[in-house]
Design a protein around this nucleic acid. Structure first.
Length: 456
RNA sequence: GUGGUUGUAGCUCAGCUGGUUAGAGCGCUGGUUUGUGGAUCCAGAGGUCGCCGGUUCGAACCCGGUCUUCCACCCCA
């Protein structure tokens, strides 16, 4: 029997202790911010019934869903004729569950199932892994975490403003100082498509315009042409693309004059900026970006996207307002606005900018090193005393050489070591060593612990 | 899903157009120091060269398949 090397499924990762420490630093910051703004946590199962998931993400999305093979004899319902009809017929017969693809659909399902108990507006946040059978790349995984916050059951633009505030709070807590929160409104895009003479085609327009940053204006024009946009329409788009320096509100007020919905979007956006002022906040970091589209087709109002400047990573957060979250599950009229932090990408950003604080890496504060059995049992009391004071402490559990014990403390980044041996047992004191400075001296246990608590 | 790319020690990589017992640095273990860690010095352990098959007298090297990695497209966080 040959021993096989264990491997991880494609596109999945382990998070080791150091990685987890850093991830938790990010996650805790986000979580506390959500809570501060009155959001409550929701968790839903990793698996949903396939009927809940399919058809919600388009044909491509369905391809990317992980399906779970039925337990037991999963071929029970598959006859030879059915099999001959191909995979689309067989799939529902062999799999009735799937792994969640995002957090929005499970959330919608939850809202519908609990509509009588939920008090609207309902503010929930949810931080859980999702799965997609995509082909992995850097920063793209088959299992990754989403970090969503949504408010449903209100049209108030206060929610939009608060999303901006939450993003600002999280980023400032993470010491990020160079980033921009891009904001736009889907209605403005609709208005633009009307004004240029291509009404109802804003989806196609959005998808192409969204690539402006990546591929440039020339290529966007080509793509639009390919999609059947007329030359005149595309030309009318020109002023929008290079309006960056002018007053956007002023310009669009005139440009969109003939489009009711466009003007409405413009007003909504204006109000969001007004609300920010009412909060006593400025619009630092906030950019009105007319060409921000986001590929997602279900946004109907505000659209957000956050980019950290001068790093190689794309957007780290995004979201928007949508109508009718729960319509597919038979509950009409529940609209909302939500956004999401890309934890994995934030991690990469902080790593690239070296912004993880030292403290986020420390595990144990104090380690007890000892010589032999007597010293070890003496050391256990030290642990108890330390833990009473809230100092995270551990003892080297084996009877090992000092060198080995110190090595362990060093590798684990433990800042303090208390040494116990026959001398200390005799004198009733302990030897406290500061691992960073290398200083050490014999003092009473309580003094030593006091010193440690003060330094953390 | 389409096209390409990568895979040698725990890690980062050498390995000449296929030729005996596959190398380095870092790390690891032990010693120098049987009461002291983090750049000293010495010694040592560790590899079915991703996996399966083929070509060959002979394969880490060539061919096919498969898995994995990364990249572009599609799409997306």
């Amino acid at each position: 029997m040959s021993i096989q090397k264990p491997t991880l499924p494609k596109g999945t990762r382990d998070f080791g202790p150091q990685t987890m420490a850093k991830r938790n630093y990010i996650l805790e910051t986000i979580k506390s911010t959500f809570k501060l703004f009155g959001f409550q946590q929701l968790e839903t199962p990793s698996m949903e019934n396939l009927s809940v998931l399919t058809g919600k993400y388009g044909d491509e999305g369905d391809q990317l869903l992980y399906k779970i093979l039925n337990s037991g004899d999963f071929l029970k319902k598959v006859s030879a004729e059915k099999l001959a009809e191909g995979p689309n017929t067989v799939l529902p017969l062999v799999a009735e569950k799937g792994l969640r693809y995002d957090l929005t659909v499970p959330f919608a399902r939850y809202v519908v199932m609990n509509r009588n108990d939920i008090v609207f507006p309902f503010k929930r946040f949810q931080i859980q892994p999702v799965w997609r059978a995509d082909r992995p790349q850097r920063g793209r995984y088959r299992e990754f975490y989403q970090c969503d916050a949504d408010v449903v059951g209100t049209d108030s633009l206060v929610c939009e403003a608060e999303i901006i505030l939450m993003i600002k709070r999280v980023f400032s807590a993470l010491q990020l100082t160079d980033y921009s929160i891009k904001i736009n409104n889907r209605k403005i895009l609709t208005g633009i498509s009307e004004v240029i003479g291509e009404p109802g085609r804003e989806s196609d327009l959005c998808v192409s315009i969204d690539k402006l940053d990546k591929i440039g204006w020339e290529k966007v024009q080509e793509e639009l042409e390919q999609k059947g946009f007329s030359k005149e329409s595309i030309d009318k788009l020109g002023p929008i693309i290079d309006m960056n320096s002018r007053d956007k509100f002023e310009f669009l007020q005139i440009f969109l004059a003939s489009s009711e919905v466009g003007l409405q979007g413009l007003n909504e956006l204006r109000e969001v900026f007004e609300l920010l002022k009412s909060f006593g906040e400025d619009d630092e970091f906030v950019d009105f970006d007319v060409v921000l589209a986001r590929g997602l087709s279900y946004y109907t109002g505000a659209i957000f996207e956050v980019k950290v400047n001068n790093v190689s990573i794309g957007s780290v957060s995004g979201g928007g307002r949508y109508d009718n979250l729960t319509g597919v599950f038979g509950l009409e009229g529940v609209s909302g606005v939500g956004f999401s932090f890309g934890v994995d990408r934030l991690y990469d950003v902080l790593e690239e900018l070296e912004l993880f604080p030292e403290e986020s890496l420390k595990s144990t504060t104090l380690m007890v090193a000892h010589f032999g059995e007597d010293a070890l049992s003496h050391g256990l009391k030290v642990l108890t005393e330390a833990r009473k004071l809230g100092i995270s402490a551990e003892i080297f559990p084996d009877d090992a050489k000092m060198k080995k014990q110190f090595n362990y403390a060093d590798k684990k980044n433990i800042p303090f070591v208390i040494i116990i041996g026959s001398e200390e047992i005799k004198s009733g004191e302990v030897t406290l060593k500061n691992m960073q400075s290398g200083e050490q001296r014999q003092i009473g246990l309580q003094d030593a612990l006091k010193q440690i608590s003060q330094s953390i």
